[in-house]
Amino acid sequence: MSFWEHFWDIFWWFFTALVFFAYLFALFAVIGDIFRDQKLSGWWKAVWIFFLIFFPFLSLLVYLAARGEGMALRSLERARKDQAEANEYIRQAAAASPSDEIAKAKVLLDAGTITAAEFEQIKRKVVL
């Protein structure tokens, strides 16, 4: 057999694998969207899951056609919510007030962990 006969076999195998993984990605995205959608009742969720199990390819196409725009909006809303939560966490973690820093330094001074000179240096650094 020549290289080119094997080449097309390999090409076909990679193409089939690509289609299969794309299908799995879309399937899991749809299943995630079904359970994330709060406006969809439990019965409709069960119906969609039933059809995705027994008629997977057709159900996937119908879901993407019928609810694809809402799926994108829910995904965007979720991303914005996650970003807002991350920003709030960063703000809380990074925003220690000067009095808090001085109080922490005082505790370290009282415990003998730092010297009086280091305590004064921390106070000057925080106040500036």
Rank of each mutant, 00 (worst) to 15 (best):
H6W: 14
F7P: 03
F7I: 04
W8V: 11
D9I: 05
I10K: 11
F15E: 12
T16Y: 03
L18F: 07
A22P: 00
A26K: 09
F28G: 01
F28D: 03
A29R: 14
V30D: 02
I31E: 13
I31T: 10
I31G: 03
D33H: 12
R36C: 05
Q38A: 08
K39V: 00
K45P: 08
K45W: 07
A46Y: 06
I49H: 05
I49T: 15
F50S: 08
F50N: 06
F51G: 04
F55W: 13
F55K: 12
P56G: 03
V62Y: 04
Y63C: 02
L64C: 10
A66K: 11
R67N: 06
S75W: 11
A79G: 03
A79F: 06
D82P: 00
D82K: 09
Q83C: 00
N87F: 07
I90S: 11
S97G: 04
P98I: 09
S99E: 12
I102L: 05
A103L: 04
K104F: 13
L108E: 07
L108A: 07
L109T: 01
G112L: 03
G112M: 02
T113Y: 06
I114R: 05
I114L: 02
A116M: 00
A116R: 08
E118G: 01
E118F: 05
F119C: 02
F119N: 02
F119D: 01
V126Y: 05
